[in-house]
Design a protein around this nucleic acid. Structure first.
Lengths: 344, 344
DNA sequence: AATCATCCTTTGAACGATCAAATTCTCATC
DNA sequence: GATGAGAATTTGATCGTTCAAAGGATGATT
């Protein structure tokens, strides 16, 4: 059980100096091919791997991303974050980056964690999720020169185009537009909407997607829009209540929702009588045969890493390749036919 | 915008040497109180935090745990892992430990990741989840002298008491025993069971909990047990199918399940006519008012850290304090009344 | 007052990598 | 063959911390 080989061991075996080995690892181009091959076979022979902490100490880079893991809010939609986490970890690993977790009780505490992780040189970039209006975290990060990318647009008007704020987001407008258009194409005439109270950056955006799809199909007054929609807090119960209200007025023959939680409630409340489309394509939706809008979390993760590493060579589907500061990714509508939900 | 303060800066301000500062941080007891106070105020004044990589390089310890994040299997029960991840991260942070993620495509690949993380000195312990019969991962870790704790018992007969294998697990037997006993106490006489095909360490354990509770209540033949239970793969659809079979024979007036996925299917299939109890207390269960057995993931996380750090002072509820090598934690039955699931 | 043990503090040397500058090698050119 | 420019490689210093051992107070004992 010998100690782990160091760069010095590799150098000795290959008959070169430490620095040459280092160059083979970091800037292979400047090493003569035959030397490089000799070093590489020595690396393979010894099973050498650079000691990350030593490297970090010297370079002052950690090759590690920090991301906060939330205490599972609603829960149903919580799994979106986890899928994102998985995609991010996997794709980060492919680029030699690690992902480190941390928790925080509130935005203020999260900022304290930023400082701690920065000071300890544990991470050299942060990935933020669930940004909100007037988010203090991004401001702190910008002021303190920390690199970061958010999954979620900054919803403050001025912030949206802040050149220091890199973001990736999913086009909720497009998702709800697709869902609504699909229902209209199926012959449904009065497609309702269940979403969250305004102001909500994400929520308002999704509502606009529904509204615009309706308008493209035919003239709709604001009163009609109001009659066909409900704004409630997220949750299965609330979704069910909203659905019963909409059904009572007899004013809808299909409903699109801002989340799977709402959609699940709506689906059960309607007893499967009218089509319901959710958002997030959570496992619950898949299990119950609920149609839903799926966020392409792989693409989001790829976009995040792309922006962070500054390598804009990745192909990211529909992402606008011309803008190096943010990515707006298109979600995908998953249509299903719920079979098993019985009538009330 | 000055550079981050180092231990040397603190020493200069406090008028002591580097090592004394280091001692204040690591072994405060050996520093004279007045010196210690002086150093601490200098630390506070400068906002000094040790550079973790430098520390790691010197001590050869990373103070970091590695844990694999799975690609979201069924999904409904997947959130259990996430809640665990959150609890682990939070409690680890309290002890100055960090949590680093990695992914792997299969157990073999996971072992390769172990090696990589070990060689890079990125982590100094691993936390494994979802152990299974004859798990090659634990064997590798033991052979290679890596410290680790598993969330989940080693189900091989010989492995269970391997002194090198530290584990924490939730007592599934107890959970299903409680659930079954509660239904019996409510006056239900024929409590059925929907679980997974044998052999399944976890699944068989849970089934035994159900069986034993029934037997304690009155004599039951093996034929009766077989008639009142079904073994199917995990999933909402399968749970529903199993429930319809049980209902068709008219042989059950309540059902306990090995998972919330199964229970959700069963609940919908039964139209809420008979009580169903799930396992994991996932957000879906909470949202639908489905009774479920909750795993105390905080306690599990605490147990994992307790075993890893070797500090056995933590109070862990019902955990047997006498055994320093593993913890068996008791789950908690959450009884709810589903209101909204309509009859088929 | 000298001696010694005890406690507290300081000093030099790592840990394993990369940076910056110095050195050696290679090869075309005179 | 000598010269020089550019490429390839090596050398010494350094990142911030802890270890091991040496140094200096302090106070009790003789």
């Amino acid at each position: 059980m010998s100690a782990l080989p160091t760069i010095h061991d590799v150098a000795r075996v290959a008959g070169v100096s430490r620095q040459t080995v280092s160059n083979v690892l970091n800037t292979p181009a400047i090493v003569r091919p035959d030397t490089r091959a000799r070093v590489q076979s020595a690396i393979a022979e010894l099973g050498y791997r650079p000691h990350e902490s030593a490297r970090r100490l010297r370079t002052r880079k950690s090759s590690t991303l920090g991301i906060r893991i939330d205490p599972m809010t609603d829960g149903i939609s919580g799994s979106v974050l986890d899928r994102f986490l998985h995609a991010l970890t996997e794709q980060a690993a492919r680029q030699g980056l690690r992902v480190m977790l941390f928790t925080a009780t509130d935005p203020h505490d999260e900022i304290a964690q930023f400082a701690r992780l920065r000071d300890a040189a544990d991470v050299d970039a942060f990935v933020l999720t669930s940004t909100f209006h007037g988010d203090p975290r991004t401001q702190w990060l910008i002021e303190n020169g920390q690199s970061f990318v958010t999954f979620g647009r900054p919803w403050g008007i001025d912030d949206m185009n802040d050149p220091q704020h890199l973001w990736v987001d999913v086009d909720g407008w497009f998702g709800l537009h697709e869902a609504t258009a699909a229902l209209l194409a199926q012959g449904h005439r009065r497609v309702g909407y269940i979403g969250w109270p305004s102001p909500s950056g994400t929520g308002d955006d999704r509502r606009r997607g529904w509204r615009d799809a309706l308008r493209e199909h035919g003239p709709v007054s604001d009163d009609e829009l109001a009659a066909m929609s409900r704004a409630v807090e997220d949750g299965v119960t609330q979704g069910g209540a909203a659905m019963r209200e909409l059904l009572a007025t007899g004013d809808v023959d299909a409903v699109v929702c801002a989340s799977d939680s709402l959609a699940l409630g709506a689906l059960i409340a309607s007893g499967g009588r009218i089509p319901v489309v959710g958002y997030d394509n959570t496992p619950v939706a898949a299990a119950l045969g609920l149609s839903s809008v799926e966020q392409p979390l792989d693409e989001v993760a790829a976009g995040v890493l792309d922006l962070l590493t500054g390598v804009h060579g990745g192909r990211l589907g529909d992402a606008p390749a011309h803008d190096p500061r943010h990515r707006l990714v298109r979600p995908r509508l998953i249509l299903r036919t719920p079979e098993r939900i019985p009538a009330q």
